Simulated scan of single mutants.
Amino acid sequence: MQETAREFAASFGNAAEGTVFVPGRVNLIGEHVDYNDGLVLPMPVREGTAVAWARADHGEIVIRAADLDESDRFAAPRPPRPPVLDWRSYVRGMAAELSPPPGTGIDLLVHGNLPRGSGLSSSASFCVALGRALGDALGRQYDPASLAKAAQRTEHEWAGVACGIMDQMAVAAGETGKALLLDCRDLACQQFELPSHWSVAIVDSGVTRGLVDGEYNLRREQCETAARKLGIASLRDADRASLDGAALNEMEFKRALHVVEEISRVRRATQAIAESDLDAMTSILREGHASLRDLFEVSVPEVDRLVDAVDAILDGRGAARMTGAGFGGSVVIVLDRAALPDLEKALDRPVRPVF
């Protein structure tokens, strides 16, 4: 935040009036169930997005992306869509969602240290940070759910990603060192403090994933098709017995089975955290990765090999699984804190502790 404020002053020639920071998130368990009205268990990471802001009398919203050395400017309240889909799409989408009055002048500078495409919700962090900065500049107070919904609509309408609400709520409402149990149907939240002898870490697979290539939206369509055939509003209302008796094709059955069992794994994970049962959490993570690999088919060989390598090093002292939408990105590891030095020494790539 201090660096972002300094860069703002250097760019605009005056001091920022305020600076906000919004973290990224890692999801411990509960993947691809948020858009099925399911339960998820994310937590904030240390990296994120900072936005410095100041009101201005030039009558436009001007923003500089320090990491890209690029800028944008437009008039409120309804900016036009940029000619190509890029970071400006998110900026203009959030501005349109918050609808500043005509003639509003705001200078913003954004700086982040979340690697894009790593599965740590860089776009959600970016959107919610923009929302908080614009809200502060406009003298408005937005609760986490309102910002999360605005950021989700921006993803849908300005970026073309039919995402659920987990990422946005996780970065807007998450608390450091705690897992957030989020009901994606009604946005009810409960914070679970992690056991002190546990650690959570992230390892980047090195495979940058993209969501707008169609695979993410395709998975959502497959789940919605399965729900329609089951005669229910969403797969949140399904169970194994209803799947066995339904007229689903093989692909639809696999997608639905993942959702049903993944929601159950979230409930089991909260119990494991409450009881400090690392053995149970280890089993849950392993089951979750296998399901994403075999039933939902969103993992890739490089990620699978990384998960296997981590599990071999830990030897029962924790486990890894892919996190995020899939097709690359990062793996999340929950492990005995005492095993962290062994993992950092044995693994052939950086390990970034979250907790």
Rank of each mutant, 00 (worst) to 15 (best):
76 A>C: 08
75 A>T: 14
90 Y>I: 06
74 F>R: 02
35 Y>D: 06
60 E>K: 13
65 A>E: 10
77 P>T: 12
48 G>W: 10
67 D>L: 08
81 R>G: 09
33 V>Q: 05
35 Y>E: 01
88 R>Q: 13
41 L>K: 03
71 S>I: 08
59 G>C: 04
48 G>L: 05
57 D>K: 13
57 D>T: 14
86 D>Q: 09
38 G>V: 09
40 V>K: 02
63 I>Q: 02
61 I>R: 05
38 G>F: 01
64 R>P: 06
71 S>C: 07
42 P>G: 10
32 H>R: 03
50 A>S: 15
41 L>R: 04
46 R>S: 14
90 Y>A: 03
48 G>C: 13
41 L>S: 04
87 W>Q: 01
61 I>D: 01
48 G>D: 00
77 P>K: 00
83 P>N: 03
55 R>Y: 06
70 E>H: 03
46 R>N: 13
82 P>M: 00
55 R>T: 07
49 T>M: 12
61 I>G: 00
62 V>K: 13
84 V>S: 13
58 H>E: 11
82 P>Q: 08
65 A>Q: 06
78 R>I: 12
77 P>M: 07
46 R>D: 10
77 P>Q: 04
80 P>E: 14
82 P>L: 04
68 L>N: 00
35 Y>V: 11
53 W>E: 07
46 R>A: 15
48 G>H: 06
54 A>Q: 09
36 N>I: 05
84 V>Q: 11
73 R>D: 02
86 D>A: 03
82 P>H: 01
39 L>I: 06
70 E>W: 01
50 A>P: 00
39 L>H: 08
51 V>E: 02
61 I>M: 08
82 P>W: 05
88 R>F: 07
71 S>D: 14
82 P>D: 04
49 T>A: 11
33 V>P: 00
64 R>A: 13
88 R>S: 02
56 A>R: 15
73 R>Y: 02
66 A>W: 13
65 A>H: 03
58 H>K: 11
58 H>I: 05
54 A>G: 12
38 G>M: 03
45 V>N: 00
89 S>V: 02
32 H>K: 04
32 H>M: 14
90 Y>S: 10
84 V>C: 07
87 W>T: 06
73 R>N: 03
62 V>T: 15
52 A>Q: 11
81 R>T: 11
83 P>M: 08
70 E>G: 01
71 S>N: 10
78 R>T: 15
36 N>V: 07
88 R>A: 04
48 G>F: 06
65 A>N: 13
74 F>W: 09
78 R>P: 00
63 I>E: 01
35 Y>P: 09
44 P>L: 08
48 G>Y: 03
87 W>G: 12
83 P>A: 15
80 P>R: 15
38 G>R: 01
53 W>F: 11
86 D>T: 05
88 R>L: 10
48 G>M: 09
35 Y>I: 12
76 A>M: 10
87 W>H: 03
42 P>Y: 05
36 N>A: 05
32 H>W: 02
60 E>N: 10
87 W>M: 04
86 D>F: 00
43 M>T: 08
72 D>G: 06
34 D>H: 05
43 M>G: 08
78 R>E: 14
55 R>S: 06
46 R>M: 09
79 P>M: 08
32 H>Q: 07
60 E>G: 10
84 V>L: 14
50 A>K: 00
64 R>K: 14
58 H>M: 00
38 G>H: 02
76 A>Q: 05
47 E>F: 12
54 A>H: 06
86 D>N: 14
70 E>T: 15
